[in-house]
Design a protein around this nucleic acid. Structure first.
Length: 259
DNA sequence: ATAAAGTCCTGAAAGC
DNA sequence: TGCTTTCAGGACTTTA
């Protein structure tokens, strides 16, 4: 599930439920989701801390604490962050619960445990960011041009590569390329200035709408709304969509509109 | 059983 | 040729 718009939704949730609150309790329900920190250490160091202003880069969510390290959340393919009252039974996929002094309890929920939660000092946050390209939602056209110019792989591969630009995943990449009418197999560096301009505009518009919806909306007028049907057709030209595997992921596009 | 919206690792290809 | 960087595919994990 989580690409940039989903994680931005989690950030907002954390911002309104958790910002400025003090942590009253930590329950690690499955310690295998902790990265680089033990359950014992996270519990003792996080309890009593006050949460600062949460921020996001790409698909990463960061929750700084006033004195100490920063909680770094990554949601893999199936993760989410929810706010509860603290009285409900934890869901079977809840892996970490964080109780706050405003009565809210945060639930880090994840079916497949592909990623997890880390407890990061400032330089570890910096090191992590060094591996990521600019955040896709505030990337300029010049930055996109620069990011794609040296890439010899496909444009689809480049858009999904978090070190090139951060935030797009499989669904968004396909959606943006479909809107921009660009064949996903095109080598990134073959895109001319016009194509990059179109791609940049498509990315901005797609992200703006998706962030508002906190997901890539599966509307019938979007590629995302069609791709999982039994016999998917293009919302624009009604012809049959093509599906293959690219960079290990299912890729859907319209061979008529995208060339 | 197959496939799934995440990234990491590996062997191989491409570039200098 | 040889070294370095980049790429595509499989592994990881769990369940519908």
């Amino acid at each position: 599930m989580p690409e940039l718009p989903d994680v931005e939704g989690f950030r907002r949730r954390l911002d309104c439920c958790g910002r400025g609150c003090r942590v009253t309790g930590v329950e690690v329900l499955d310690s295998t989701i902790l990265r680089g920190v033990s359950a014992r250490r996270l519990t003792s160091e996080l309890t009593g801390q006050r949460l600062g202003v949460p921020w996001r880069h790409g698909k990463w969510l960061f929750a700084p604490t006033d004195g100490g390290p920063t909680l770094g959340w990554h949601f893999g393919m199936t993760g989410s962050l929810l706010c509860g009252t603290g009285r409900e039974e934890p869901h079977r996929h809840d892996r970490l619960l964080v109780g706050l002094d405003d009565g809210v309890r945060l639930h880090y929920r994840d079916q497949r445990k592909l990623k997890g939660v880390s407890w990061l000092r400032e330089r570890e946050v910096d090191r992590l960011l060094e591996g990521l390209g600019p955040d896709a939602s505030d990337m300029t056209r010049a930055e996109l041009t620069e990011a794609l110019s040296d890439r010899r792989g496909t444009v689809k591969g480049a858009l999904m590569n978090q070190s090139v630009l951060a935030g797009l995943g499989n669904l968004l990449s396909d959606e943006v390329l479909w809107r921009a009418r660009i064949d996903p197999r095109t080598p990134a560096r073959h895109l001319d200035a016009d194509a990059v301009r179109t791609l940049h505009g498509a990315m901005r518009r797609t992200l703006r709408t998706s962030v508002r919806a906190e997901r890539v909306p599966p509307r019938p007028s979007w590629l995302t709304g069609r791709r999982d049907g039994p016999d998917p057709t293009c919302p624009r030209c009604a012809r049959r969509l093509e599906a293959t595997r690219m960079s290990g992921r299912r890729t859907v596009w319209c061979p008529h509109c995208q060339r």
